[in-house]
Simulated scan of single mutants.
Amino acid sequence: MDGQKFSYNFFMNFYKELIENSINPFILFSETGEIIEYNKEGEYLLSIAPKEDLYNLAVSHASMSFGFKHTFLQLDIGHATYCAITVGYLDSEHIGLMLHKNTCGSKVQKSSKDLQPANIFTLLDIAINTHLDQTKITAEYDISIPEFKLDINHFLKLLNKIFRTLKNAQKLFIKVHIAMGRSLKIDEKRYRVVEVIIESEEITKLDKIEDEQFIITVNNNQLHIELPFIS
């Protein structure tokens, strides 16, 4: 009996961790469209896509009766392409959505001509101290990220442009982390993604910002910069 209980708990915890660390976003909704649970990729998806749109996507592709339904399609959200969705419900109060990422068609970025090892946190501090002396900064940095190669001058120019535009913001939230399940393709090689998230009520001033080297997404009050983790 104890062995069965242990086995059940083990597998439940295993499946929970498997979903949490999947490269595919998972979101569980209530019957009214409220978010109940999501994994790491689901959190990112919700940062760039309205929850109402994702809920409607789930409902429109759900089966007519209790169970799970798989639909193959091509769906582009942000810089990701999805090739299928799975929608399932076991009662009338919950509905789950999983989008299946098309990893073969993931992002491609041009190589840089001048790459140098750099500490991304130092570069951020330089730009922040230059432009945001009156702004309250809250930072969430994954300090386990070591130095990696990038075009230092170009990246600093981008940061200076961003923070110069946001210099009148009262407060700013900055997060730097390794983006789970995402990659950038450069010269036929794939690299993990270091993501810089800048959040402010002033972000709308950067709606039109573009860059020839870095992938930038602006949604709601957040700006996302994706950098290849080239060691």
Rank of each mutant, 00 (worst) to 15 (best):
G3L: 10
Q4F: 05
F6W: 10
N9L: 14
F10C: 13
M12A: 15
M12P: 07
N13L: 10
E17K: 13
I19L: 09
N24S: 01
S30K: 11
E31Q: 08
G33I: 03
I35R: 01
I35L: 05
I36C: 07
I36G: 02
Y38Q: 09
K40S: 06
E41R: 03
G42V: 01
G42L: 04
Y44C: 00
L45K: 00
L45C: 09
L46C: 05
S47D: 09
A49N: 06
K51Y: 10
K51W: 05
E52V: 12
L54D: 02
Y55S: 02
H61P: 08
F68E: 12
K69R: 12
K69W: 04
H70R: 12
F72V: 13
F72D: 14
L75M: 09
D76W: 11
Y82V: 06
T86H: 07
V87M: 06
G88A: 07
Y89G: 06
Y89A: 04
H94L: 11
I95A: 07
G96D: 02
G96M: 04
L99T: 00
K107W: 00
Q109Y: 04
K113V: 12
K113C: 14
D114I: 14
D114S: 14
D114G: 07
I120P: 00
T122M: 11
L124F: 04
L124M: 08
D125E: 11
I128R: 05
T130V: 12
D133A: 15
D133L: 15
K136Y: 14
T138A: 14
P146Y: 03
E147L: 11
E147D: 13
L150A: 01
D151C: 07
I152P: 01
F155K: 01
L156Q: 09
L156F: 12
K157T: 14
N160K: 07
K161C: 15
I162N: 03
R164F: 15
L166F: 03
L166I: 05
K167L: 10
K175N: 10
K175F: 04
M180R: 10
M180C: 11
R182G: 01
S183W: 03
S183G: 10
V196N: 02
I197K: 07
I198T: 02
E201L: 11
E210L: 10
F214N: 12
I216Q: 06
T217S: 10
V218Q: 08
N219I: 06
N220I: 10
Q222E: 13
E226I: 04
P228W: 00
